[in-house]
Design a protein around this nucleic acid. Sequence first.
RNA 1: GGGGGUGUAGCUCAGUGGUAGAGCACCGGCCUUUUAAGCCGUAGGUCCUGGGUUCGAUCCCCAGCACCCUCACCA
Length: 537
Amino acid sequence: MSEDDRLRQQRIKKRDALIELGIDPYGGRFADVQSTTSIRAVGDGLNIGVGERSETRARVAGRIMLLRMMGKLAFVTIHDERGKLQLGLSRQDLGEQWAILKQLDLGDIIGADGVVGRTKTGELTLWCDKLTVLAKSSVPPPEKWHGLTDVDLRYRRRYVDLFANPGVRNVFRMRSAIIQAIRHCLVSEGYCEVDTPVLQPMYGGAAARPFTTYHNTLDMKLFLRISPELYLKRLLVGGMERVFEISRNFRNEGISTKHNPEFTMVELYEAYADYTVMMHRVEQMVSAAYDAVGRENILARAATEGERAEGDDKPDRAALFEEMVAKINGGRLALVWGDKLLDFTPPWPRLRYADLLKEYAGVSMDDDAAVRKKADKLGIAHAKKDDAVVVNDVFEATVERHLIQPSFVMDYPAAICPLTRRHPDDPSIALRFEAFAAGMELGNAYTELNDPAVQAENLGRKVAGEGDETMAVMDEDFITALEYGMPPAGGLGVGIDRLVMLLTDSPSIRDVILFPLQRPVRTSSVDTAPAAAGKDV
RNA sequence: GGGGGUGUAGCUCAGUGGUAGAGCACCGGCCUUUUAAGCCGUAGGUCCUGGGUUCGAUCCCCAGCACCCUCACCA
């Protein structure tokens, strides 16, 4: 028997012992539970002396994280969603329930009733006279001090990660607050939240490889959406003037710290607006998201970082946090992400694509020969690519990493923007911007193209250098929609996951997605044996 | 796909070409005021997988798998 099984068996034995005692080890309804934090607040308000007990009764529930047995007395620390509380359990108070305590393990979920008091060392404690077993845990939890650190296991068993590493729960609480803030921000601007198809017979709205699937009854190939764009624009045609969707998108491409195959965007369209209005919307949403995370939260991060930094090898980060605190106190929307100090205070700088290319690549956007020469220097293969694609390759290679502070890059080469209206004075320029922060693309917006003839032409054109599968696909029904007349509009997409990364100081997109895609665990050694691999290949 | 790193007890990690280690967790003993409780004792291992070199491999070599970082890809 493996150690794993042995520990499991021991716990199951304890579970059976509970059943013998007439206790249901998996509990049931447990009404009127107070949170550990509220009991702590109540206790602090009672002015209980050290070593004394009050008359105030309370009921809590949570998972056992620490358990200290001392003969006829035990201290148990339980965690609930927001905090923790120490329970004091004595043989005298518990009477025959003392037998229950002996069958408890770290990781079990219990309920407790008792009176609020304080121990001799001053810790607020619930002195229990009644224990309720709510869920026996048959697997030992991770080590109590370090928690679960194996990155692979953290994602695979996120449920363990969440209860063993409370900071993780906080990240997802903030993610929820950020999404709520964005939703509230848009709704209060008169936007209507909608849901458009995830299963699409035709994909579009972005340059990406789709996932494919199949509907049996209709005998039909379907794609998981790479973007909701073309459906949301149909709604503009239908007279919905301000719409948004918090949209899960799926792209069958590489995985990195900034890319997950499924990710969440907020995408919005506003009739009679243009991309300059969308810049304002980005600033509004990000400001609201920053507020949702809260200055206190961001400052608290700096405080804990300060503790950790003592005697550490990262004095830079401590200094960075100091600078951040100063900015926040000065009313700025500042925060630290990794080794960078970011300032989200609007207005963000509006930078021109062509100017940036000139500044960082030293070439002019319309000087194709110079751009290709630069591409050679950078080692970018460009022979079979269209001019605009090469320009953008050079841009990405030279400019993007400099875009640390939140800013907008506007006026892209038109050829790589098939869904965007062109500049009235210069058809080679598209009225598009991307929002950047920390060298990462955060959002993308257009003054939307509403001319059906130009749109049809753009969708029909091949741009050399973009993969066949990622090319824009002709969508006849979308063109028909435009022919009915779509109001001029501004449209915008903002990557929620990346925004959450920045606002929670998370280095990887996987830290802000509860269940990031993982390769399945191989269960049989036969699967991994090279000898068995031959038959399928 | 390229480069780098990691994989050893349930968890967190040391370590060595010759019988495998610590802390925590677990089990047993003592303990009514602990704070990562303490003291004593026990138990727990396919050292990621496969192959090679070797008298002998957890360690060296080759291949594979998984994860992390980085580059590429990626609106």
